[in-house]
């Protein structure tokens, strides 16, 4: 395991742990998701740089575009939950339990 691999793996795992265990606000969950996607961006960009491959040069940008779409969908859902539930706390998302 190279230092770069260790770095992006631990960043991703930190983001995943934040998403899984810090369940207070929807916004913080979305930020953790974004952090995970950015660590993947760094991983993909470093992989491309190491191999000097032109085939792969566009893949980090594709990843970034998709993660931006995902983040915008998440923010739209944040607005929707704020309008329907009155808050963005994940605790209030309890209508469907039984």
């Amino acid at each position: 395991m190279t230092p770069a691999h260790f770095a992006f793996s631990s960043t991703f795992m930190l983001g995943l742990a934040g998403l899984a265990f810090h369940r207070t606000h929807l916004l913080s969950a979305l930020l953790c998701l974004e952090g995970m996607m950015l660590s993947l961006f760094i991983a993909l960009a470093l992989w491309t740089l190491q191999l000097d491959s032109t085939n792969f040069a566009s893949s980090p940008m594709i990843l970034l575009a998709f993660s931006a779409c995902e983040a915008s969908a998440g923010l739209a859902l944040l607005v929707a939950t704020a309008r329907t539930h009155g808050t963005d706390r994940l605790q209030s998302l309890n209508l469907l339990q039984c």
């Binding site: 991703f12 995943l16 993947l40 995902e70 859902l77 929707a80 939950t81 539930h85 469907l96």
Partner: peptide, 26 residues
């Protein structure tokens, strides 16, 4: 409200799964 809540939960689960999939393949 129920539909929005279901969508939010679905989005969080699917986005996490997709990110994990990409992390594993990278």
């Amino acid at each position: 409200p129920r539909a929005v809540e279901a969508t939010t939960k679905y989005f969080l689960a699917q986005a996490t799964a997709a990110a994990m999939l990409l992390f594993a393949s990278i």
